[in-house]
Computed example of a mutant assay.
Amino acid sequence: MNGGAPLLDVAGLHAWYGKSHILHGLSLEVGAAETVALLGRNGAGKTTTMRALCGLLPSVRGSARFGGTELLGRPPHAIARSGLSLVPEHRGIFASLTVEENLRIAHRRSSRWSPEAAWAMFPALADRRRTPGGKLSGGEQQMLAIARALMLGPRLLLLDEPTEGLAPVIVERLVALLRNLKAGGLPMLLVEQNLDVCRAVADRHAILDEGRVIWAGDTAALAAAGGVVSRHLTLEHA
């Protein structure tokens, strides 16, 4: 991370699903102009981390400070208003609402993003603005999920497996979109299995195993960490 206080500072984060202890003292940071990728095999705790940060788990312990304010213990709507916006793994769009309705229902007046501004960045959505979300292709639904998250005016965008199940050509378009958002100054925390995507988008990477960060470094360090990658990651495009 570059100098200065981190935008997101997670320390000693524990989380449970019922009696199952999933996160075991996880710590990570995201700087104010950074994209950080969370890597790890299925079950390592990546999605649980995202859900804990967004107030979607009832049982958590530790600290997660966002812009200097503690997130843990706050309700999800308050966390969203503070500027943390999640694109969930299964997109979570409203299938019966049109593309435009999905965006307008999420739009916050204070956001620099509006449905009108989104059409320029998401031209495929502009062409289908009156189409119900459930009638879109998988790639279009993912773009809609990201556009809808932007309507909230995030200070930090969380993306959980954004390329899962998408064709390679759609993944390329999504990578270009994320790089544009990054160039525009939007920090991101990215959960992703595709290492090519992580290398193309993220500044730093953190590998999780059994609910802990067991390795962290920049993209050059990740390229040199072949042993860690082979032991702890699903080798997709490694």
Results as ranks from 00 to 15, higher is better:
residue 4 G to C: 02
residue 5 A to L: 11
residue 6 P to N: 11
residue 7 L to W: 07
residue 13 L to D: 01
residue 15 A to C: 09
residue 15 A to H: 00
residue 16 W to E: 03
residue 17 Y to S: 06
residue 17 Y to G: 00
residue 23 L to C: 12
residue 25 G to A: 10
residue 25 G to P: 14
residue 29 E to R: 15
residue 30 V to H: 06
residue 33 A to Q: 12
residue 35 T to W: 03
residue 35 T to G: 11
residue 42 N to M: 09
residue 45 G to V: 13
residue 45 G to L: 15
residue 46 K to M: 09
residue 49 T to F: 04
residue 50 M to D: 02
residue 52 A to V: 10
residue 53 L to V: 10
residue 56 L to Y: 02
residue 59 S to L: 06
residue 60 V to I: 06
residue 66 F to C: 04
residue 66 F to E: 06
residue 68 G to E: 07
residue 70 E to N: 07
residue 71 L to C: 10
residue 72 L to K: 07
residue 72 L to Y: 11
residue 77 H to T: 00
residue 77 H to M: 01
residue 80 A to G: 07
residue 84 L to E: 04
residue 85 S to H: 01
residue 85 S to G: 06
residue 89 E to N: 09
residue 91 R to F: 00
residue 94 F to L: 14
residue 96 S to V: 13
residue 96 S to F: 12
residue 97 L to P: 14
residue 99 V to F: 07
residue 100 E to A: 01
residue 100 E to D: 13
residue 102 N to I: 12
residue 105 I to C: 12
residue 111 S to P: 01
residue 112 R to I: 00
residue 112 R to D: 04
residue 115 P to L: 05
residue 115 P to E: 06
residue 119 W to S: 07
residue 119 W to V: 15
residue 121 M to C: 04
residue 121 M to F: 12
residue 124 A to G: 01
residue 125 L to S: 11
residue 125 L to R: 08
residue 127 D to M: 09
residue 129 R to A: 15
residue 133 G to Y: 04
residue 133 G to L: 05
residue 135 K to F: 14
residue 141 Q to Y: 03
residue 146 I to E: 03
residue 153 G to M: 01
residue 153 G to P: 03
residue 153 G to W: 01
residue 155 R to H: 15
residue 156 L to E: 13
residue 156 L to W: 08
residue 157 L to N: 00
residue 158 L to N: 07
residue 160 D to E: 09
residue 160 D to C: 10
residue 161 E to P: 05
residue 162 P to E: 02
residue 169 V to I: 13
residue 171 V to C: 05
residue 171 V to D: 01
residue 172 E to T: 01
residue 174 L to N: 08
residue 175 V to I: 11
residue 177 L to K: 03
residue 178 L to R: 05
residue 179 R to F: 03
residue 179 R to P: 03
residue 183 A to H: 06
residue 184 G to D: 10
residue 186 L to T: 05
residue 186 L to W: 05
residue 188 M to G: 02
residue 190 L to A: 14
residue 192 E to S: 01
residue 193 Q to N: 08
residue 195 L to N: 09
residue 198 C to T: 10
residue 202 A to I: 12
residue 203 D to T: 00
residue 205 H to R: 11
residue 211 G to T: 11
residue 215 W to V: 04
residue 218 D to H: 09
residue 219 T to I: 08
residue 222 L to A: 10
residue 228 V to E: 15
residue 233 L to Q: 12
residue 234 T to E: 15
residue 234 T to W: 08
residue 238 A to W: 07
